[in-house]
Write a protein that binds this DNA or RNA. Structure first.
Lengths: 243, 243
DNA sequence: TAGTGGTCTAGACCACCCT
DNA sequence: GGGTGGTCTAGACCACTAA
């Protein structure tokens, strides 16, 4: 492991264990460099990571300080913006089932061409799945994937985990993703499969998942029951790159 | 401006203007360093910024490449996760009005203590505002702020822009924020002020805004009309910091 | 004015990709 | 094996904070 990551990890542990307290100034970069037997640039890089992770902040000319509430963040090692399918997110002894409602191949419509940056002659998978958590209908997922990017999908794969197949079997590595969240009225499918009444709102999440190189891999529109899902995210204030 | 930012800006311009094309390999770091009269480390830092911004990706041993669709991102200089109040976000000749429905001082409840990390004896402002965009009711904002952190708020300030007052007059600098989005059924206020019917869903966004040092400044719950607001965000895949 | 963080350099070595 | 990115160092200078 890179040395700056080791240093970042060690400092994170110290924050977590209370060796460096909230609101407290931690040793200066020079001292840390000496302690870890490394250079100041490397220490700086480690502190930058912790800053992005929301654990510390620096004041030029003054020092580096532990943020309030930093401990909460230090506890959990998970990364914000992590891309895990629902299957992995369930955990906790809850039983997640998937029912494939529809599995077709067709040409994309205009919106799908736009989102996936493909020609309208490039065929796509059209997948509709119902997710059931602990016997309760949970979400309706409509997924569009260009066939060329993820060949040989079968109904059997969809019954297990599509993401496991893409990541594990095909060796695909996900990159960034863009999501848009709305509240919408339930449509016929929501009423039928999610058991929504007319008054039950739906949380609609549309997402485009990209590969490392920026190629759109998957366009999905997911309808969540309003009483089973909420979405959280953290905006980290960053340097104004670009003038 | 720091040299690495200048380099990042110049490369961004080249991507935007098409000098470096999508999917194309850009010159190696050594060449760029020579061209810009700087060191390779500085070029690397510039490329790291562009990578975080989603414009390029690197493959060790191979080179640095322009992402597909990078141009779209290069066009707009705005930052994801930017903290702008609605007043600034309106723009576009649309008329945004604010109506203060309620402006009180009281002690916080348990949830507010929890979110704002304050004692239950620390008084807070309790603000309810209706936002109106182009004569149409837009959102209902319920804002809780510890008095000690933002003193001397007046109804007059709320009629202008609270964020302008906090940032401009008080010189407060915002840090990170955490948001949670849900779809909920309209309550009595939503029906009255947002003109929601029983079937109109509401997009509820609860947010905690932090100061640079990690102190929670503001806890807000905003109800948006489902047909006027959607929320977008980008998850950037980052290095797995921490082992 | 002393302490501290931000940036930059020149050179070095390693890891990885590709032919 | 040559090309390229990832990391690291020692030293330097500047910018800012705090007393």
């Amino acid at each position: 492991m890179a040395k700056y990551k080791e240093v970042a990890n060690e400092i994170r542990k110290r924050i977590k264990s209370g060796i460096y307290h909230s609101e407290e100034k931690i040793p200066d970069q020079e001292s840390l460099a000496k302690e870890f037997g490394t250079s100041r640039v490397t220490v700086k890089k480690a502190l930058d990571m912790l800053s992005v992770a929301g654990l510390v902040y620096t004041i030029q000319g003054s020092g580096t300080y532990v943020k309030k509430n930093a401990v909460n963040l230090a506890e959990r090692n998970i990364q914000i913006g992590q891309n895990v399918g629902l299957t992995a997110a369930a955990g906790e002894r809850l039983e997640l089932k998937t029912k494939v409602l529809d599995f077709n191949v067709r040409f994309p419509d205009e919106e799908e061409c736009n989102q996936l940056s493909i020609m309208k002659e490039e065929p796509v998978y059209d997948i509709r799945r119902l997710r059931i958590l602990d016997e309760k209908p949970y979400s309706l997922e409509h997924t569009i994937i260009p066939i060329s990017l993820a060949p040989n999908i079968t109904k059997e794969i969809l019954n297990r985990s599509l993401y496991d197949y893409l990541q594990g079997d095909l060796g695909i590595v996900f990159g960034d993703n863009r999501q848009t969240v709305r509240a919408v009225k339930p449509d016929a499918n929501d009423k039928q499969y999610l058991h929504c009444s007319n008054e039950d709102p739906v949380l609609e999440v549309s997402k485009v998942m990209f590969l490392e190189r920026g190629t759109p891999l998957e366009y999905s529109i997911v309808h969540h029951r309003y009483d089973m899902v909420e979405m959280s995210f953290i905006n980290v204030s960053r340097d104004g790159l670009f003038g």
